[in-house]
Computed example of a mutant assay.
Amino acid sequence: MSAAAPLIEIRELARTFGGGRTIFGTKKPQLTAVRGVSIDLVQGETLGIVGESGCGKSTLARMLVGLDRPTSGEIRLSGEDLSASGTKALARRVQYVFQDPVSSLNPRQTIREILEAPMRHLLGLGRAEREARLAKLIDDVNLRPEFLERYPHEFSGGQAQRIGIARALAAEPDVVVLDEPVSALDVSVQAQVLNLLDRLKRERGLTYVFISHDLAVVESVATRVAVMYFGAVVEEALARAMFRAPLHPYTKLLIDSAPVPNRKRERLAGDTGELPDPYDPPPGCPFAARCPRVEADCREAMPPLEAKERGEGHRAACFYPLAA
């Protein structure tokens, strides 16, 4: 981990859905989407969170911005418990950029109304100050001033995502959570949006949480990476260390599965590619059924996420990590 004081501290965060009993007394099924996640976010970094669909990364992102409430655990921002903060205070400091740029914008509002809302409700700005900030905000995301009077359906996906980024920045946040921000865009537009995000981060001193299943994108933008599997973080390290020499077999599987020109993709022997049943989680390590290094104790106890002999805060939840 970095020696710098963390901006966000996540401790034993968990989120379950369902559970309880029906009016007839029968037990309802319960699904645990996030299981005991503990991780820090240092100011000025880009933390990439990667994993397969269903691993819990988007649920974690929604809890960070207050769109979902944790079942247990805590999230602290600059030492303040976010669960105890008012919604307005939380929204002011942590903002969210959605995966689908068009559907995340209110179709009944003009772009001016969409961008003015955070300035009015979160910052309490008057009309003249809002107008001045709107002009700069539109220019910062490379859009034209006349776009302010148009509606979301009039824009392409790339333009709509720039508007979504501008809406997040309108509240002048400390942290921006980006949930698959380029997955719905064409490849050429993806590069433009990623370059824009990089520039805005440098100019505004932002801290990013970047959620993605695309390892190539994460490798290009993240300073540190956390890999999630079945609701838990199974490996965390600086990006360069993670991609150069992963410790967890699941991380290596993800890296080896990424499409590379002229390289044949090979499936691990015995790997079905299926996640465990979330309503009936197995004992021990949830990756055990797919792991080529599995031993008996892997099926009995969940390995703790702990530092290995790699330095620079390289942690892995594995009893038999890959060799250096």
Rank of each mutant, 00 (worst) to 15 (best):
Ala307Gln: 11
Asn195Met: 05
His248Leu: 02
Tyr96Trp: 12
Ser257Glu: 01
Glu80Leu: 10
Gly79Asp: 11
Pro145Met: 05
Asp277Met: 09
Met228Pro: 04
Ala84Gln: 13
Gly231Arg: 04
Asp256Tyr: 01
Arg35Asp: 15
Leu122Tyr: 06
Pro29Cys: 02
Val50His: 05
Leu185Ala: 02
Ala258Tyr: 12
Ser78Leu: 12
Pro278Ser: 04
Cys55Gly: 03
Ala324Lys: 10
Met302Gln: 12
Leu64Met: 14
Val234Glu: 09
Phe98Asp: 03
Ser53Ala: 10
Gly86His: 07
Phe319Gly: 06
Thr26Ile: 01
Leu305Arg: 05
Gly48Ser: 08
Glu9Cys: 08
Leu194Asn: 00
Arg144Lys: 14
Arg150Val: 02
Ser183Trp: 01
Gly205Arg: 02
Phe24Val: 10
Gly313Thr: 11
Gly270Asp: 10
Lys57Val: 03
Ala269Trp: 09
Lys136Ile: 00
Pro246Lys: 07
Tyr250Glu: 01
Gly73Ala: 10
Ala61Cys: 06
Gly56Lys: 10
Gly313Arg: 06
Ala14Gln: 09
Tyr250Pro: 00
Leu134Asn: 02
Ala307Arg: 13
Leu322Gly: 13
Gly20Ile: 01
Leu67Thr: 05
Phe230Cys: 13
Ala226Gln: 04
Thr87Asp: 13
Ala128Arg: 14
Arg244Ile: 00
Pro6Ala: 04
Gly164His: 09
Val233Gln: 08
Arg299Met: 13
Ser58Arg: 11
Ala239His: 05
Tyr279Cys: 09
Leu215Met: 06
Glu80Pro: 00
Phe17Val: 02
Tyr229Phe: 15
Glu9Asn: 02
Asp280Gln: 13
Pro101Val: 10
Arg127Tyr: 01
Glu116Thr: 14
Val234Ala: 12
Cys291Asp: 11
Pro70Met: 04
Glu203Lys: 11
Gly44Pro: 03
Glu154Gln: 15
Leu206Met: 13
Leu238Phe: 14
Pro6Asn: 05
Val233Glu: 01
Val234Arg: 10
Ala168Ile: 12
Glu80Ala: 14
Arg267Trp: 00
Ile49Gly: 09
Ile49Asn: 05
Arg240Asn: 08
Leu253Pro: 00
Arg263Lys: 14
Ala245Asn: 14
Gly158Lys: 06
Ser156Phe: 06
Ala160Leu: 08
Ile8Pro: 11
Tyr229Gly: 10
Pro101Lys: 08
Leu64Arg: 05
Gln99Trp: 13
Val227Tyr: 11
Pro70Arg: 08
Val294Gly: 09
Pro276Trp: 07
Ser220His: 15
Arg199Gln: 14
Ile8Ala: 11
Glu274Gln: 15
Thr32Trp: 03
Ser72Gly: 13
Ala258Gly: 00
Pro107Tyr: 12
